[in-house]
C-alpha cells in the first residue's frame, strides 16, 4: 500500500433523494480524508447529514430513490458503485460500524458471545472454540468484567455501558482498519461516556484503527478527535485539526455552535448566545450559504454558495476570511495559554 495514500478518501460525496417533483440533496459535495490511527469527528446537528454520510460510505444506502455519487476510496479502492456482494467483504472485516443504541444493534434472542462469535466466523474460517477464545479476549480488552460469564449473557442482561463495550468488541473482532462510530455515547450516562471515549482513544494505539466519530457534541469532539469536519444542512461548513478549529473557528456556524453550549467553568452569562431559528430542511435549503438566514454576519455576498477556501489550518465555506473579516479567536474561561 502506498504510504501517502489515506485510509479513507471521500471526494465530492453526494446523496440525492429522487422520486418527488424535485430532487432533494441530503449530502452535498462532502470531501474528507481519514488516516490510520486517527480520529476524525463528523459533527453537526440533527439533519446535518452526518449519519447519511456514514451510511453512504458503508454502502448501506442501497434503496430505490437514493442516488449516491462522488467517490469513496478505501485503501485506494473505490466503494461507490461496488456490488452489495463485494461490499459484504469490506463491511465488518475492513470497515466496521457501531451505533448509538446497542440494544437494537444486537439481536435480543442470542447471547452477546454467540453474536460476536458469529461475526468472526462470517469473515474467517475458524472453529467455534477459537472464535469464542477471541471473543472472550476482546471483551476483556474492552474492559468487560468477568468476560467468560458476560459472553454467555443476553443483551438485556447487560447495562448500557457494558452493551456498548460488547458492541465495540464485536466491531473490532475482525481487526477493521476503519471504525465508524455513530453517536456511540449519546445514550450513555456521562461517567460511562467518559470511559467509552477513553476506550475509543486507545484503539488507535492498540489496534491502529482509524475512527470516524459521528457526534452532535462539541465536547466529545474536543476530548477525542484529531481532526473535525463540521456539517451544516448536508454541506461542509468547516474542517481542520481540532486544536486549530477550537482555538479559532473560522465559520460563524462553528462559533455559534460553540457559544451556545453553556460553560461549566468561569462566569455564567445572564443569557446564552443562541442561534435564532432552526437548521433548514434539505428540501428548503437557501440557494446561497445555507447558514445565511441565521448568521449575524450575513451580507450581500452570502446569496451565492460560498466555495470552500483554505484559511490558516482550516478549510472553511465562508466568505468572511477572504473579505478580510476573519472571526476573532475564541476566548475560553479557565484555559491558560
Amino acid at each position: 500500500m502506498d504510504a501517502d495514500m489515506p485510509l479513507l478518501d471521500v471526494r465530492d460525496l453526494r446523496v440525492t433523494l429522487t422520486g418527488s417533483e424535485k430532487d432533494i440533496t441530503l449530502v452535498d459535495s462532502v470531501s474528507f480524508t481519514a488516516g490510520a490511527g486517527e480520529i476524525l469527528g463528523l459533527v453537526g446537528e440533527s439533519g446535518s447529514g452526518k449519519s447519511v454520510t456514514a451510511l453512504a460510505i458503508m454502502g448501506l444506502l442501497d434503496m430505490p430513490g437514493l442516488v449516491v455519487s462522488g467517490s469513496v476510496r478505501f485503501r485506494g479502492r473505490e466503494l461507490v458503485g461496488l456490488s452489495q456482494r463485494a461490499l459484504r467483504h469490506v463491511r465488518g472485516r475492513e470497515i466496521a460500524m457501531i451505533f448509538q443504541d446497542p440494544m437494537t444493534a444486537f439481536t435480543p434472542v442470542y447471547t452477546i458471545g454467540w453474536q460476536i462469535d458469529e461475526a468472526i466466523r462470517a469473515h474467517e474460517k475458524i472453529s467455534r472454540r477459537d472464535a469464542r477464545t477471541r471473543t472472550v479476549k476482546l471483551l476483556n480488552e474492552m474492559g468487560v468484567p468477568d468476560p467468560e460469564r458476560t459472553a454467555n449473557r443476553y443483551p438485556h442482561q447487560l447495562s448500557g455501558g457494558l452493551r456498548q463495550r460488547a458492541m465495540i468488541a464485536m466491531a473490532l473482532s475482525c481487526n477493521p482498519a476503519l471504525l465508524i462510530a455513530d453517536e456511540p455515547t449519546t445514550a450513555l450516562d456521562v461517567t460511562v461516556q467518559a470511559q467509552i471515549l477513553d476506550l475509543l482513544r486507545g484503539l488507535r494505539h492498540d489496534y491502529g484503527s482509524g475512527v470516524l466519530l459521528i457526534t452532535h457534541d462539541m465536547g466529545v469532539v474536543a476530548e477525542t478527535c484529531d481532526d473535525v469536519l463540521v456539517l451544516y444542512s448536508g454541506r461542509m461548513a468547516e474542517t481542520g485539526p481540532a486544536a486549530a478549529l477550537f482555538a479559532r473557528p473560522a465559520h460563524p456556524y462553528t462559533t455559534a455552535l460553540l457559544d451556545s453550549i453553556p460553560p461549566l467553568t468561569g462566569p455564567r452569562p445572564a443569557r446564552l448566545p443562541s442561534i435564532a431559528g432552526v437548521p433548514p430542511s434539505p428540501a428548503a435549503r437557501p440557494s446561497g450559504c445555507a447558514f445565511a438566514p441565521r448568521c449575524h454576519y450575513a451580507h450581500a455576498s452570502c446569496t451565492t454558495k460560498p466555495p470552500l477556501i483554505v484559511w490558516e489550518e482550516q478549510e472553511v465555506a465562508c466568505v468572511l476570511p477572504t473579505e478580510g473579516h476573519a472571526l476573532p479567536p475564541r476566548i475560553t474561561a479557565g484555559e491558560t495559554p
Partner: peptide
C-alpha cells in the same frame, strides 16, 4: 467531583488526564 470531571468540554485540554469512575451505576 467525578460527575463534573466526566463532562466533555468544548475546549482542547493540554493535559487530558483525569480520574474516571469505574463501572456503571
Amino acid at each position: 467531583a467525578a460527575l463534573i470531571a466526566a463532562v466533555p468540554e468544548p475546549v482542547i485540554r493540554l493535559h487530558a488526564s483525569r480520574t474516571l469512575l469505574r463501572g456503571d451505576v
